[in-house]
Each structure stands twice: as C-alpha cells, then as structure tokens.
C-alpha cells in the first residue's frame, strides 16, 4: 500500500512534470522533518510537540463529548418528553454547519486548549447522542418482554439489556467522532491568537509555502496521521468489545 502510494506519487510528478512547488518529492517532505526551525529545534520535534498538543485537545474533547452524548441518550431513553423536546434539535444541528461557529467559541473561551476541546466535544456528542438513542431503542421486543417477565427493574433493563444492545451503535458513532474531534481541534486552532497545535502549524506553513512547500505537506501528513491513528484506535477497541455483534449497524 505504502509502496503503491509512493509509486503513484513520484510517477505522477514525473509524468506531468509537476514542479516541487505543486508536488514536492517524498524525500523532500521527509527531509523537512530533519530541518532546523527558527528556534534551533528540529522540525520532527516541533511537529511532535504540536501534534501531541492537538491530539490531547481532541482526546479531552472526545471524552467530554462522548460522556455528554451518552448521558443525553440515556435521558432520552428514559423520558419521551425530553426526547421529543430536544432530539429534533440534535438532529437538525447535524444538518447545520456547526463548525462555522468555531471562531465564536474561541471568542468566548479564549485561545487556550480549552476552547479547542469544547469544539471537539461539540462535534463528538452529536453522533453519539443520535446513534446511542437509536441503539437504546433498537432492543429486541421479545428480549424486553422476557426481562419484564423476570420482573427486572428499569435500571437492570438498562444495564443488562439496552446498553449492551446499543454498543454496536455507540461504536459506529465513536469512530465517526474520533476523526471529527481531530478536525474540531484543528479548526479551533485556526482563529487568530492560537499559538500551538497542528492548525497553527498548517496556517503558518501555508503562509511560507512559496519558500518551503514541503513544510505544509509535512504538517498535513502529520494531521492526517493523528486522525487515522485515532480512528483505528477506536476501531480496535470496538473489535474487542463488540466482537459478538453479528450485524454492524450502518448509519
């Protein structure tokens, strides 16, 4: 796979005679990591610092959003009125470009890591709420009737029946959210005033693109890697936790 990409990359560059300005050599990108930055540090180290900053923001946001989404979904499962009152907005807000308010969140909460984590959380909790409440309701009616016949309390039903049944739905959402939270963190770093994170690195690299095109490519590569690692980490947990699931729900 990696070899195939490299071949297509360099082949395309040679075939269309693309200048390094449009498509740098792979070794140029690799070399960029070893170049020294303004502060005398190697870019590998600079990237690593900013990447872990962004990753941490996403992780905190992911956890925050995940818990919020879960609590909301359980609330919806408990109260029809709560669900009727709020779910339409949760669903409607999925159809709204929520990322557009990222600059406003930064106005409220400042340019620290916290505002980025909140944006990441915001992106995480929508899929979790929607999918989880769908999952909690998708319980087999026969299984529910059996629990009732065994005089199970609603708490027992929730934890022994509804929750396990909803897990596949939850993980589908978490996978989507994993990448979304990284996107949220990066976009949160774009507004003026932020100092750390891959969003800042990307914006800066874009400004100096004419001098060092490989730098932007390297920054984007690192950002992509964060997203991919995050996604596959969740997918790996999913495979362990819901290995019993026969049919993965498609959402």
């Amino acid at each position: 796979m990696v070899v195939a990409i490299a071949v297509v990359w360099e082949g395309g560059k040679a075939l269309f005679a693309l200048p390094s300005y449009q498509l740098p050599h792979l070794h140029e990108i690799a070399a960029d990591f070893l170049r020294e930055g303004a502060g005398g540090e190697r870019w590998l180290w600079i990237m690593a610092q900013n990447a872990s900053y962004t990753a941490l923001e996403s992780l905190i946001g992911f956890a925050l959003g995940g818990v919020t989404g879960l609590v909301l979904a359980i609330g919806f499962a408990h109260s029809r009125w709560l669900e009727r009152g709020l779910l339409p907005y949760v669903v409607a807000s999925q159809t709204v470009p929520i990322l557009a308010i990222a600059p406003m969140v930064v106005v409220w909460l400042g340019t620290s890591w916290f505002s980025k984590a909140v944006i990441a959380a915001y992106l995480t909790f929508f899929p979790v709420t929607v999918n989880m409440s769908r999952g909690l309701r998708a319980v087999d009616p026969d299984a529910l009737a059996m629990m009732r016949a065994l005089a199970a309390s609603s708490r027992q039903i929730l934890f022994k029946l509804r929750f396990p049944a909803a897990l596949p739905y939850l993980f589908t959402a978490l996978r989507i959210s994993a990448t979304a939270s990284v996107i949220g963190a990066i976009v949160g770093e774009l507004p003026v005033g932020s100092r750390f994170g891959m969003g800042v690195v990307i914006i800066n690299a874009a400004q100096y693109y004419n001098w060092r095109p490989a730098n932007l490519w390297a920054a984007i590569l690192v950002s992509a890697v964060i997203g991919i690692v995050f996604y596959h980490a969740v997918a790996a947990v999913e495979r362990r936790v819901v290995s019993w699931s026969r049919t993965a729900p498609v959402v």
């Binding site: 449009q22 874009a206 992509a224 991919i228 996604y231």
Partner: peptide, 18 residues
C-alpha cells in the same frame, strides 16, 4: 471506508496552491 479517518479539511491550504 478507512478514508473517513483522514481529516480532509486539513488539505484546504494545499487545495489553494493547486
């Protein structure tokens, strides 16, 4: 399917170059 894991939006500055 795995392409969903790539934060495509980060490519925006490159798209401007192209």
């Amino acid at each position: 399917v795995a392409s969903a894991s790539v934060p495509i939006i980060a490519l925006a500055p490159l798209a401007i170059v192209w």
